[in-house]
Design a protein around this nucleic acid. Structure first.
Length: 814
DNA sequence: GAGCACTGC
C-alpha cells in the first residue's frame, strides 16, 4: 500500500519542485508494482572486450572501466587523458611474415610502433605523477624490501591498481631467481623462481582494462600481441600473455586455478590482491592460501620469498593485519632450510615476521550528505521528489545517480520521472532518464555513458551495479535508497534467498563517493542519520552467504585435509561447513574418511559446481551421446538465462510460436538441449536466429564457450573420444539425461500433493515452478530442479519432469 | 507470472 510520506530534506525548499501527486496516489510506484515488461530484458552484460565506457579523470577507475576499443562510443568525453590512441592489435589479424620473431603469435613486432608507445607512456607519466599514490612509491618499495607482506588502504582514485605493479616490477627481488627445490624423493632440482607480479581483480573487465592501461603507461604492447610485451592478463576464455610478461592481471578464480597446478606460485615474485573489501569467496581462499605460503618454509620455492600485497579501499585493516600476524605467529621460525646458498634471495628471517601497513588518501572532492529527517517507507516516491528538487534547485551541469534495489524499482521510477517531466517548466533543462541494471541489453547500458545532450540533465536509475562494476562520469548528485538485493544461501533449507536488505556503511560511503569524482557533490540518503549509524560496518563476506561445497572441494583438492584449521579470513559457521561436507559425501566426491575421492578430484578440476560436475560424470557412464547432450545442458545452466523476455505483444506472439519448436514437454533441461542444438546447427546467421527465437545471442555465445571448454576437458580426461568431429545428430535419450541429473540433484526434487502444489521430497517444503520454466503451471508426478530460490515465495528453477521411482533410486544411491 | 552483482584449467 502506498504510504504518504513527508520527505523534506534539510533546508532545501520543496515548494519549487512539482508536487509528485502521481507518486503518492499511484500504487505502482512501490517495489512490487507492475511497471514491467516494457523493454527487452535479460541480457548479460557485454564482456570486457566489448564494453565501452566513459573514461574518467582518475587513472585507477579509468583503467578499470576504459574502453578497450579506441573508437568506442563514450570514449573521449573527457579530454584530459585522451591521447592519440595506441595501435590496438587485432587478434584475428593474419600472421604476417615477421623476420624478427618467427615464433611469435600472429601479431608482429614490425607492426608495433614502439616509438609511439614510448611517446604515449611519456605523456601518461605526467598524469601518473599527479596520482596520490605516486609520492608513496619509495615508502612502498622500502616496505617490501624489508617485509614480505604489505597491507595497503588506498581510497578510490588513489591509483593503487595501476601504480603498485609498476613501482615493484624493477625491484631486485622481483627478478627471476635461481633456486633449488627438494623433490619428494630427496633429490634436488634447479629451477627459476619468480620474475612476475600477479594482480588479482574480482571482475574480468577490470583485469583486462587495467592490463591495457598499465601496458600503455609502461610503453609496452599488451599481452600476446608481441613477444616483447611486459604486461598481460588472464581471465576465463581469454588469456593474453607473452614470454616477457612481468605484470599479469588476473581474476581471483584464475589465480586459484593456477595454484591448483603450481601451489607455490613459482612464476611469481609477488601477488597483489586488489579490492579485498569486496570479499568475494575467492578472495577468502586466495588470502588463506597466501598466508600459508608466506608464513611457511617456502620449500616449494627454494626459499625464495613471495611478496604479498593486500589492497583494500576501506580501512578495515585490523582484521587483515591480525589474520596475517596470526600466520607468522603460529608457524615455526623460518630457517630458510631448503634454499640454496647461491640464491640471491634475501635471507632475512625477521623480514617475514612483520607486516607493513600503508594508507593512501584518495582523490576525491567533498560530498555533502543530506539525510532524510524521518524514516522513508516508499523510497521510489521519495527518490522522485528528490530528483525534481535537485533538478529545480541545483545548477547545471550535474547528473543524478539514483541507487535502487532492482529492475522493478528502476522501471517504476523511470516511468514516474518521465510522466512527471512532461509537466515541467519548459524553461528548465530537460531530463533524460537512463535505467541501468545488469540484465539490461548492452546497447541500452551504453546510453548511460554517452554525455548528456545540451541543456539536459541525465538521471541514471541504477542497481548496485554502479557501486562497483561501472563508473558513470558527470555525476554530482547521488540519491541512495539505502537498500540492495542480496543473495543469501540458507544452509538448513538448502535454499537461496534473494532479499532486499539494508546496505552496509561501507557500501553507503561507496555510493556517496560516486558524487565526488569530478567536482564537489551532494548525496541524499533516503534514510535517517540514525539508520545510517545502525548499519553494519562492511558487507557480509560472500563466504557467509553462499553454498560452500565448491570452495571446500577446491581446498580438499589442494590437500587441505583439515578444513577446520584452514586460515579463513572469516570463518563460516560450523553448520555451513558440515552441510557442504555432507553434500560432497552425497555425491561421492569425498571418501567416508573425509579425504577427496577419485570422483571428487575429477570434479574439482571442472569449472562447475560440484553437483553439476557430478552430473557430467554420471552422464559419461550413460555413454558418449548422453555426455555430449548433458554438456550442452550444463553449459546453459552455467550462464545467465538464455531466453529473452518478449518486448511487445505482437512480437511476443511471433516469438512464442518460433520458440515453440524449441520447447520440450520433458522440461527445461531438454528445452535447453534443443536450443543449443538448433543454435549450433545454424550455420548462416546465428545472431539472426537468436533474434527470431528471442534467445539471447550473448548468452548463447557464452554457452558455446563453456561447451567448448567442457568438451575439451572431457577429451583430455578420455571421457570423450579425441576425434569427435562428427556432428552429433543422434536422438537424445531423455531418460538417460534426466537420470544423470538426478545423480547430482536427487535432493532437489518435489512431488505433487493432492492439493495441487508441490512439496520437496526431502524436507516437505512447499515449492512452486518458477514462471520462467516451460513447465510453469503444469501438474506432474514429480519434478527435479537445479535451483531452489526464495524471492516473493519459494520457487524451483530449471525444472524437468521425473518419475518418483527414479528419485527413490537416486536417493538410495547416495 | 518473474530476474542484486560478480566469477572458473
Amino acid at each position: 500500500m502506498p504510504e504518504k510520506v513527508h520527505t523534506h530534506f534539510g533546508n532545501l525548499a520543496e515548494e519549487s519542485a512539482p508536487k509528485p501527486t502521481l507518486a503518492t496516489d499511484e500504487p505502482s510506484a512501490t517495489e512490487n508494482a507492475g511497471h514491467k515488461k516494457k523493454r527487452s530484458k535479460k541480457r548479460k552484460r557485454e564482456e570486457a572486450a566489448n564494453e565501452p565506457q566513459a573514461p574518467r579523470d582518475d587513472a585507477d577507475s579509468n583503467a578499470k572501466n576504459a574502453s578497450p576499443s579506441p573508437n568506442a562510443p563514450g570514449e573521449g568525453s573527457k579530454s584530459e587523458e585522451k591521447v592519440d590512441s595506441v595501435p590496438q592489435p587485432q587478434e584475428s589479424a593474419p600472421a604476417p611474415k615477421s623476420k624478427l620473431k618467427p615464433k611469435s603469435k600472429p601479431f608482429s613486432d614490425n607492426k608495433t610502433n614502439f616509438t609511439s608507445l614510448r611517446e604515449k607512456a611519456n605523456t601518461l607519466y605526467e598524469l601518473r605523477k599527479k596520482l596520490p599514490i605516486f609520492g608513496h612509491a619509495d615508502e612502498i618499495r622500502k616496505n617490501l624490501r624489508d617485509q614480505d607482506v604489505m597491507l595497503l588502504v588506498g581510497e578510490t582514485g588513489s591509483g593503487k591498481s595501476t601504480q603498485i605493479p609498476q613501482f615493484l616490477v624493477n625491484e631486485f627481488w622481483c627478478r627471476p631467481q635461481p633456486a633449488k627445490i627438494c623433490k619428494e624423493d630427496g633429490t634436488t632440482k634447479s629451477v627459476t623462481v619468480g620474475g612476475c607480479i600477479a594482480i588479482t581483480q574480482p571482475r574480468r573487465v577490470a583485469a583486462i582494462s587495467l592490463a591495457r592501461r598499465v601496458a600503455e603507461e609502461m610503453g609496452t604492447p599488451l599481452g600476446s600481441s608481441s613477444p616483447a610485451s611486459k604486461v598481460g592478463y588472464s581471465v576465463r576464455f581469454d588469456t593474453s600473455t607473452s614470454p616477457s610478461t612481468r605484470v599479469k592481471f588476473l581474476t581471483e578464480g584464475m589465480l586459484l586455478q593456477e595454484m591448483l597446478h603450481d601451489p607455490w606460485l613459482t612464476k611469481y615474485s609477488a601477488v597483489v590482491v586488489d579490492e579485498v573489501h569486496e570479499r568475494g569467496i575467492n578472495v577468502d581462499l586466495v588470502t588463506g592460501f597466501l598466508r600459508n605460503l608466506v608464513s611457511g618454509k617456502r620449500e616449494g620455492r627454494g626459499g625464495v620469498p613471495l611478496k604479498v600485497v593486500v589492497m583494500s579501499a576501506t580501512a578495515d585493516m585490523e582484521s587483515l593485519l591480525g589474520f596475517f600476524q596470526e600466520g607468522f605467529k603460529g608457524q615455526p621460525q623460518l630457517q630458510n632450510g631448503t634454499s640454496d646458498e647461491e640464491s640471491e634471495a634475501p635471507t632475512k628471517d625477521e623480514a617475514s615476521k612483520d607486516i607493513s601497513v600503508c594508507h593512501i588518501k584518495g582523490r576525491q572532492f567533498p560530498v555533502k550528505t543530506i539525510y532524510s529527517p524521518a524514516p522513508v517507507h516508499d523510497f521510489v516516491d521519495a527518490a522522485l521528489k528528490i530528483i525534481f528538487q535537485i533538478h529545480y534547485k541545483e545548477p547545471m551541469p550535474g547528473d543524478i545517480l539514483v541507487f535502487l534495489t532492482g529492475q522493478e524499482t528502476v522501471e517504476a521510477l523511470e516511468n514516474l520521472v518521465n510522466e512527471y517531466a512532461v509537466g515541467m517548466d519548459p524553461n528548465l533543462p530537460r531530463i533524460l532518464v537512463l535505467p541501468l541494471f545488469a540484465a539490461l541489453p548492452q546497447v541500452a547500458q551504453q546510453r548511460v555513458f554517452a554525455p548528456a545532450p545540451p541543456r539536459t540533465r541525465k538521471v541514471i536509475l541504477s542497481t548496485n551495479i554502479a557501486e562497483t562494476s561501472v563508473t558513470v562520469s558527470g555525476v554530482r548528485y547521488v540519491v541512495d535508497c539505502g537498500k540492495a538485493k542480496v543473495k543469501q544461501f540458507r544452509t538448513r533449507l538448502g535454499l537461496d534467498s534473494l532479499l532486499v536488505k539494508p546496505i552496509s556503511k561501507s557500501a553507503a560511503i561507496q555510493r556517496k563517493g560516486r558524487a565526488g569524482r569530478e567536482a564537489a557533490g551532494q548525496c541524499f540518503r533516503l534514510y535517517t542519520e540514525k539508520d545510517y549509524l545502525s548499519l553494519d560496518e562492511t558487507n557480509t563476506p560472500e563466504i557467509l552467504r553462499c553454498d560452500l561445497s565448491q570452495a571446500l572441494l577446491n581446498m580438499k583438492a589442494r590437500g587441505v585435509d583439515d578444513i577446520v584449521r584452514f586460515p579463513f579470513l572469516t570463518r563460516p559457521p560450523r553448520e555451513a561447513l558440515e552441510k557442504a561436507l555432507l553434500q560432497l559425501l552425497n555425491i561421492n566426491a569425498l571418501e567416508e574418511t573425509g579425504g577427496i575421492s577419485k570422483v571428487g578430484m575429477h570434479i574439482a578440476k571442472l569449472p562447475l559446481t560440484p553437483t553439476l560436475g557430478r552430473v557430467l560424470l554420471a552422464a559419461s557412464e550413460h555413454g558418449t551421446e548422453c555426455l555430449i547432450d548433458v554438456i550442452d545442458i550444463i553449459s546453459c545452466l552455467s550462464v545467465e538465462t538464455i531466453f529473452l523476455n518478449t518486448t511487445s505483444e505482437e512480437k511476443k506472439e511471433a516469438a512464442e510460436t518460433a520458440r515453440r519448436d524449441l520447447y520440450r514437454r520433458e522440461g527445461d533441461h531438454l528445452t535447453m538441449l534443443s536450443t543449443v542444438r538448433a543454435y549450433a546447427g545454424e550455420n548462416a546467421d546465428r545472431k539472426a536466429w537468436a533474434e527470431r527465437h528471442l534467445v539471447s545471442h550473448r548468452a548463447m555465445q557464452s554457452v558455446m564457450d563453456v561447451r567448448k571448454q567442457l568438451r575439451n576437458q572431457c577429451r583430455q580426461s578420455k571421457l570423450l573420444p579425441r576425434d569427435d568431429r562428427q556432428d552429433h545428430h543422434h536422438d537424445p535419450s531423455p531418460v538417460d539425461i534426466l537420470q544423470s541429473f538426478l545423480c547430482g540433484f536427487a535432493t532437489n526434487t518435489a512431488r505433487l500433493v493432492p492439493d495441487g502444489s508441490y512439496r520437496t521430497v526431502v524436507g516437505n517444503q512447499t515449492v512452486a515452478i518458477h514462471p520462467s520454466s516451460v513447465l510453469f503451471g503444469k501438474k506432474l508426478e514429480a519434478i527435479m530442479y537445479n535451483e531452489f530460490v526464495f524471492t516473493n515465495r519459494t520457487y524451483a528453477r530449471g525444472v524437468s519432469a521425473v518419475q518418483m521411482d527414479w528419485v527413490g533410486e537416486a536417493l538410495a544411491g547416495q
